[in-house]
Write a protein that binds this DNA or RNA. Structure first.
Lengths: 183, 183
DNA sequence: TGCCATACCGTCCGAAGCAGACGGTATGCA
DNA sequence: TGCATACCGTCTGCTTCGGACGGTATGGCA
């Protein structure tokens, strides 16, 4: 059913399934605090996508009449069914990376000698910082049963961050021997 | 200089810098064999983007008159300068992940009990397969000095794949105890 | 009570990204 | 000669994207 939905669609459906009836603004904040860490969605889509889903009958909209023209969306039975079908079906696509740093590293032959070291240093710092953020979240929500099941993706995020950190650190070691020791 | 280029622009610029003068078709194949593994570009853009870059003076186009209307692009001085400036400048963005499997995992509460195990099994297989591909590439080009510098990104790719494999394997262990042992 | 600053919230638009259909060209082999 | 297949480029319609913009509620201070 339903033409074929995009990942964005399922983020909307799924977030509403987890939180209950929500406005676009609610979605925006919820996504910003969770999925947004590994998959970026421009907030404009969290306004347009629910409208589309409502037209498809997967969501039900209720518009406030006074004050802000705020719209609250709730899941329909069809919406929940669509979401569950998606969760149950195979996932053929391999993940994609979108890492500007990796791109730069690939073309490093074209650049100047110091470039790689500078890049590596930056990346080490960035990944360390991100790891701190994740560990903080993990600690904060450690014993909140309500979100325990969601927090599991944090572990994946941490694995990835550590892998990246390991890579850039060792690259830095290899490359920083002697040359360009300046911060 | 130049409004501000997209990652796609730098992929085109960079690939031409590495390979020398190229047609869009050349770019398509070269990208498919390298960067395409971690960052997907639809081939149509490898036709339109060089045209834009030529208008900006970063590339120089030469069109064949007979047979196929093939266009060969070569880097201008401005193009090389732009590329080198990009390589030298800081990289503020953190990588993005786009992993459908991670999305499904995040919403697993909504699904049925067997879903996570099935997902994990799939992912383990997929990452193992990808690791095999990468290791094969690594072995094949191990002693080709010409591409050694590019192959370093493969190491990063492998680190990432291993991290993902570790995560999904251990998740599978945790979740597959007793329930749903069917392939 | 009126005014301002600031957070809150939603819409719009132009540009870029994207998938894939389509159509034309060269090559090889029956 | 004719067909199959690989090679190569273009086009179209749609979605995604970033960010500017504009309106609305709240609280504090004059």
């Amino acid at each position: 059913m339903a033409d074929r939905l995009s990942p964005t669609s399922y983020v909307v459906l799924g977030t509403i399934a987890l939180r209950g009836p929500s406005t676009s603004y609610d979605l925006k904040r919820a996504v910003g605090r969770s999925i947004g860490y590994f998959w970026h969605f421009p907030h404009a889509q969290l306004y347009s996508e629910p409208q589309r889903l409502a037209e498809l009958g997967l969501l039900e909209a209720e518009t406030e009449t006074e004050g802000r023209r705020r719209r609250t969306y709730r899941l329909t039975e069809e919406g929940r069914a669509e979401l569950k079908a998606w969760l149950a079906e195979p996932t053929p696509e391999h993940f994609q990376m979108r890492d500007i740093a990796e791109l730069k590293l690939f073309f490093n032959e074209v650049g100047e000698p110091g470039d790689v070291a500078r890049l590596a240093r930056e990346q080490v710092a960035a990944h360390r910082e991100r790891i701190a953020v994740y560990e903080d979240m993990q600690a904060r929500y450690a014993d909140l049963d309500a979100v325990a099941k969601r927090m599991i993706t944090l572990r994946l995020g941490l694995e990835m961050e550590h892998a990246a950190l390991r890579f850039w650190s060792s690259l830095l070691d290899e490359v920083a021997d002697g040359i360009d020791e300046t911060a």
